[in-house]
Design a protein around this nucleic acid. Structure first.
Length: 436
DNA sequence: CCCTTCACG
DNA sequence: ACGTACGTGAAGGGT
């Protein structure tokens, strides 16, 4: 961990270089109003750190050890031999040569044994399902349960990540050593890992996340009237979308229709194709195409935005976010169709993902500024793309909730967004309990 | 050092 | 006819 003085020296040295580069490419507002002011905020988050209950993880580690040992025996019995389960190559030999299961698809180096493949193979043999369970636990143990305690700082007793502002092509932050932006949130063991991220005695964790931030940004960028109205009026965005796609009233929307609608919206954000949607939904491609067509018929402004964005990107060679961040997309000029399609998906997704990144960065600056004078004991300790996490003393909790929610939501108004923003709050003694 | 896999938004 | 969802970081295997 660098000292504040060292950090300031690095900033002073790099600032003129970055500034010149950004002047040349026209993103000076972004640089002056967001990226530079964010630097001390990021430094403070890194310095604050996150408190980790190491003994929770040590207990969990022993439990996982026993569980993995048991599974290793079962796997060896089913395979008829011992082998290294963590080696995709050895696993492929067992599955596809020894047991003669049918390969689903290839990687560059051999037959794939990824989750999707093993799930399909599970209909033919008992072994693949066991491998999946083993892999799941093994991942959690090595990447989180055993690795995190070693990164606790010996002076502060806390975990101090590095937040990088110059890595992600869209303008998102990234987090390293440790990456605190990919801590598990699903499954029994995943949730128990989150329980190890705690607030110190007398404090609470406060989590604030933007609800549906990317669809809202899409509504703003496209100005699609129907989509804007959804965010002004609807209480359940995905059900509202399902009503449009399936042309049915609220009382006829099933859970499955809602799930389809949710997946379609995600698909739009990522630069959809019938193939991609079909494989995610597990439906035939023509059916996926029907959903996409229905969506675009109802939200014609979204379709127009996508076409306009790709067209402009091809002409200029780059796309931009609400604050003017540019992402060059040279793939759009490729002679290779696959590369061009890839470029088109990036052209659609980057303004959305990147504008959401601009927005939360601005919010971080605003929240940080107000906390400094109004609630100096409340500390910002992490950002995870659409959420901010704080550590706050019990006596400040109610005030902190109000301040954080209002400042994060007001950021949308500062940017003159054409949709309202909604922030959900959660409070608890640990990250699992505090997750909204 | 690259590849595969998988954790998150 | 062809390959395809967007953005990251870390661990383990194997060359």
């Amino acid at each position: 961990m660098a000292s504040a003085a060292e950090a300031a020296a690095v900033v002073a040295r790099l600032a003129p270089v970055l500034k010149t580069r950004l002047e040349e490419q026209g993103s000076l507002r972004l640089f002056d109003e967001v990226e530079m002011p964010l630097v001390p905020v990021l430094a403070e988050i890194e310095r604050n750190g996150f408190s980790l209950n190491v003994s929770t993880l040590e207990t969990l580690s022993k439990e996982l050890e026993r569980e993995l040992d048991r599974m290793m025996d079962t796997i060896a019995r089913l395979a008829g031999q011992e082998f290294n389960i963590n080696s995709p190559r050895q696993l492929a030999t067992v599955l596809f040569e020894k047991l003669q299961l049918k390969p689903i698809r290839k990687t560059k180096t051999g037959y794939s044994t990824d989750e999707e493949t093993l799930t399909q193979l599970a209909t033919q043999h008992e072994l693949p399902a066991q491998i999946l369970s083993y892999r799941g636990l093994s991942k959690l143990k090595s990447t989180y349960v055993d690795a995190l305690p070693m990164l606790v700082h010996r002076e502060t007793g806390r975990l101090h990540t590095s937040l990088n502002q110059t890595v992600a092509a869209t303008g998102r932050l990234s987090s390293t050593e440790p990456n605190l932006q990919n801590i598990p949130v699903k499954g029994e063991y995943g949730l128990r890992i989150r329980e190890a991220f705690v607030a110190p005695p007398g404090h609470s964790l406060l989590c604030a996340d933007y609800s549906q931030i990317e669809p809202r940004i899409l509504a703003h960028l496209s100005r699609d009237e129907r989509l804007v109205r959804v965010f002004e009026q609807a209480e359940d965005i995905h059900s509202a979308t399902a009503m449009e796609i399936f042309n049915k009233p609220a009382d006829q929307i099933t859970r499955d229709m809602r799930r389809v609608a949710k997946t379609v919206v995600f698909g739009i954000l990522y630069g959809i194709s019938p193939f991609g949607l079909a494989s995610t939904l597990g439906v035939p491609q023509p059916e996926a195409k029907k959903y996409i067509d229905a969506y675009f018929q109802r939200y014609a402004g979204v379709k127009a935005f996508i076409d306009r964005t790709i067209e402009e990107a091809k002409q200029r060679g780059y796309v931009t976010t609400i604050l003017g961040r540019r992402r060059p997309i040279p793939e759009l000029a490729s002679s290779d169709q696959t590369q061009r399609s890839f470029g088109e998906r990036m052209a659609v997704n980057s303004p959305i993902q990147g504008s959401a990144a601009d927005l939360i960065k601005l919010a971080m600056i605003g929240v940080s500024r107000r906390l400094r004078t109004e609630l100096p004991s409340t500390k910002m300790i992490l950002q995870v793309h659409d959420e901010l996490i704080f550590e706050t003393p019990a006596k400040d909790l109610e005030q902190a909730k109000r301040l954080v929610k209002s400042e994060m939501e007001a950021t949308g108004e500062h940017l003159n967004l054409s949709v309202p923003l909604k922030v959900d709050l959660g409070v608890g003694a640990n990250w699992r309990a505090a997750h909204p």
